[in-house]
């Protein structure tokens, strides 16, 4: 596992514990509670982080081993 993945996940987990806005009762567009919108942002940030992880820190050796396995199966 690459350290960059751990750094991203660690950062997301810290941002997830949003104690500083516990009592924030602001409504976004008068309809969406602030805490809900913030945590939806965390969900989207997680998806972007995983996109980066699969793009730049993917364990390529697993692809090679599964290719080799497929070839073995075909032969």
């Amino acid at each position: 596992m690459k350290p960059a993945v751990l750094i991203f996940v660690g950062l997301l987990l810290i941002l997830h514990q949003d104690y500083w806005q516990w009592e924030n009762d602001q409504l976004i567009f008068g309809a969406f509670p602030y805490a809900l919108v913030y945590h939806m942002g965390i969900s989207l940030a997680a998806a972007v982080s995983w996109l980066l992880a699969t793009r730049f820190w993917w364990p390529e050796h697993l692809d090679r081993s599964s290719d080799a396995e497929r070839e073995r199966g075909a032969s």
């Binding site: 913030y38 965390i42 997680a46 998806a47």
Partner: peptide
Amino acid sequence: YGELASASGI
């Protein structure tokens, strides 16, 4: 939502 949904996403 934060308790389970965004936590599960990560």
